[in-house]
Amino acid sequence: MLIDWFTVGAQVLNFLILVWLMKRFLYQPILHAIDEREKRIAAELGDADTKRAQAENERNEFQKKNAAFEKQRAELLNQATLDAKIEGQRLLDEARKAADSLSAKRQESLRNEGHHLNQTLRRRTQQEVFAIARQTLSDLANTSLEDRLCEVFIRRLSEMDAKTKPVLAEAFKTAIEPALVRSAFELSADQRSLIQNALNETFSADPAAQLRTGIQIRFETAPELISGIELATVTGQKLAWSIADYLLSLEKSLDELLKDQDKPLAKVMPELEVNSP
């Protein structure tokens, strides 16, 4: 018989003991070690995950902060650059304005100075010229000149234009007082009669004057006329020929010319007539 039942029982017992022993000495410790290790690995992985997440968070935060900082810096820099540019422009403008105004002032003062000098020079020149002219003419004036003056006056009377003549004739007609004839020198009796005759002739041509015997006149000496004769009616009409008139007229026109040069844009004043009608 191949089966020994005692051996079978012994082997069953042996096997059960072996099972217990193996559990005790092999499976439990080994499985425990494996479990411990797995737990440990899991814990470490979890820890690593946590740390990684934390690191990630921190990195993100840092990046965010960094980006914000960069942005802020760039903004500040831009702002500063802009401000500096504006400030620089403003300073430049101010400086330019100041320089402009200074230069304008300087130009103005230069011009004024020049102008004044010019003015003074001109005035002085003018005065000198006229003074010389007056002096020369008064030095030259004598009896023969007076005769010439008288002749010229008489010629002018006769050459009087058609417009002036009736006006003067009307004045003589309505005059109560005699007309005034002024001259630089005392006129001689010949000269006076010549003038009287000339007046009579001139205005006797007029039908209104024919009614009268003659034109009433009186004579007066006026040295300021320099050289010349002037006929003035009571109503204000005046017929004159004198060097002083010429000089006055010349002076006036010179003054106007100077004024025009000073103010080129100003309108040219209309020339005044020396003789009023």
């Binding site: 020994d4 082997q11 425990h32």
Partner: peptide, 29 residues
Amino acid sequence: NATIVFTWGLMLVLVIGSKLITLKLSTDL
């Protein structure tokens, strides 16, 4: 008999081997 004796021998080898190896079990990596 030899069956029982050799079984004991095997048991001894298995148990002592396990015991020896599991004496210094490490839970580290």
